[in-house]
Structures are given as structure tokens and as C-alpha cells.
């Protein structure tokens, strides 16, 4: 191992995060190389300064004050816990739908400890983006709905998606009306669809993790003699509903 390679690994070496072989190679190089040894010593010194400084800062704090302040609140906290969780979930939903600003790096402004079992690392962030995308898509569908009358086509019916069952029992409701998009559905699945309705779904609630067997319940379908087909893709948190309007299709034929 040369200095350049060692330099790349020195941080992970110092943190003890290298695998066995790399650890050994880095250690052998560092013990023989003054420059790398000095680099490592600098990191040790920074660590020592931090520890000493913070230890000094807390040295004379009376730790018994912590329990003294916590203890009286526990009775109350225990009895209110479930209600608080519901409130926390609600505020998260509100935050999601209203687009509450989040911190630059994806930290929750108010972390709900009950959601700890959510998937760690970037997976959770991805889901948040997916959901945000879903909400944006839903908004665009609604916008399209408002534009339909201007295009000379009056909405004649609608599909109301009542709820989406997930393992967390969360639900969201999105109402759609007829959208004219002749020829194709927005999902490139199957044959061309005469009338396409795309329903972007936002699954809300704790951790935004969809169940693998997602179900979408349709509360009502107000399209007489129409065939409804549905496609749900949990991976992108999207459900697409096709309404095959037989009357119109027959007219075109």
C-alpha cells in the first residue's frame, strides 16, 4: 500500500470500519510511514480535544436534575401516549399535504420516536420523495379535471377511491373525474386504453411504507356500463385506474 491509497483509507481505518485485510494493510503502512502516522495523530488529537472540552462542559452539571424533571411527567405521559401518537401522525399528514418545509438534509422537524421501526437510511427519504411525487401527480390530475369543461367535454361521472389499505391502516382519499386522454393510458401497460384515469395516490401516516399487498377500495363508480380496470404498483406508490367507457368506445368503432 502506498501513501495515496492509505490516505483514502485513513479515516475509515481510524474509525475501525475497514474490513480485516484492508485494516491490516493500512496498519502496516501507517506504522512505517511518518506522514500517514502524523495524519492519524492529528485525528486522534482532534478527538481528544473534543472529548476533553465537552467533558469539561458537563462535569459540574448535577445529573440528578434530569430524573427530577422527568419523573413527575411520567404518569401523565404514560396515560396520554396513544393519543399523542395519533396527534403526531395527524400532524405528519398535514405536513405532507400542505408541503411543510423540511430541513435541508431531510431531518424531521418533529421526530416521532414511535416511527423508529421505519426503514433506515436513504430508503425512507426515497419514499418521501415518491409520496411527494404522488401528491404532485394527484394535483395535476385535479388540475386536468378543472380544465376538462373548457375543452368542451363535461365530466359525466367519477370514481371515488375511498381508501388504501396498508399494514399501517393509513388512508388517503383522492377523487377524480373524467379526464379525456384518447388513445392511451398514462401507464404503458397493456393495450391502448380508450379513456384513461390516472390516480396518483398518497399513502400517508407513519413511515409511509406501503404493504406489499396493497389494496385500493373503490367506494363508488359512476360510469354506467363501463369496465373498470386497475393497476397498482406499490414500488412507485401509484395506482392507475382505467375506465373503459363502452358507449364511447362503441361510438368510435
Amino acid at each position: 500500500m502506498n501513501c495515496r491509497e492509505a490516505e483514502r483509507l485513513i479515516e475509515t481505518f481510524y474509525d475501525g470500519e475497514l474490513d480485516g485485510r484492508s485494516m491490516r494493510d493500512a496498519a502496516m503502512h501507517i506504522t512505517r510511514c511518518k506522514r500517514c502516522e502524523a495524519e492519524l495523530a492529528q485525528r486522534e488529537r482532534v478527538q481528544e480535544l473534543l472529548s476533553r472540552t465537552i467533558e469539561h462542559e458537563i462535569a459540574d452539571i448535577d445529573l440528578s436534575r434530569i430524573w427530577a424533571a422527568v419523573e413527575p411527567t411520567l404518569e401523565d405521559a404514560g396515560s396520554r401516549s396513544s393519543g399523542l401518537r395519533v396527534a403526531a401522525a395527524s400532524s405528519r399528514v398535514g405536513g405532507l399535504l400542505l408541503g411543510r418545509a423540511r430541513s435541508g438534509d431531510g431531518q424531521d422537524e418533529s421526530f416521532d420516536p414511535a416511527s423508529w421501526d421505519a426503514p433506515p437510511s436513504h430508503a425512507r427519504g426515497l419514499w418521501r420523495w415518491t409520496v411527494a411525487g404522488g401528491v404532485a401527480l394527484a394535483a395535476s390530475v385535479l388540475l386536468a379535471v378543472t380544465l376538462v369543461p373548457q375543452l368542451g367535454e363535461t365530466p359525466q361521472g367519477g370514481v371515488r377511491v375511498a381508501s388504501e389499505k396498508t399494514d399501517l391502516g393509513s388512508s388517503a382519499t383522492t377523487e377524480v373525474a373524467r379526464v379525456s386522454s384518447p388513445g392511451t393510458g398514462s401507464a404503458s401497460r397493456g393495450a391502448p386504453v380508450p379513456e384513461a384515469f390516472e390516480v396518483a395516490r398518497a399513502s400517508v401516516g407513519r413511515a409511509v411504507r406501503p404493504a406489499s399487498n396493497k389494496q385500493v377500495q373503490v367506494e363508488s363508480v359512476n360510469f354506467p356500463r363501463s369496465a373498470v380496470s386497475m393497476w397498482s404498483e406499490p414500488a412507485s406508490d401509484t395506482t392507475v385506474i382505467w375506465i373503459d367507457d363502452e358507449e364511447q368506445a362503441a361510438g368510435r368503432r
Partner: peptide, 8 residues
């Protein structure tokens, strides 16, 4: 403490 019941 409020959430400890859910810590798995």
C-alpha cells in the same frame, strides 16, 4: 417514555 411501548 411516551413511545417506549412501541420500541421493538
Amino acid at each position: 417514555f411516551r413511545s417506549i411501548g412501541r420500541f421493538k
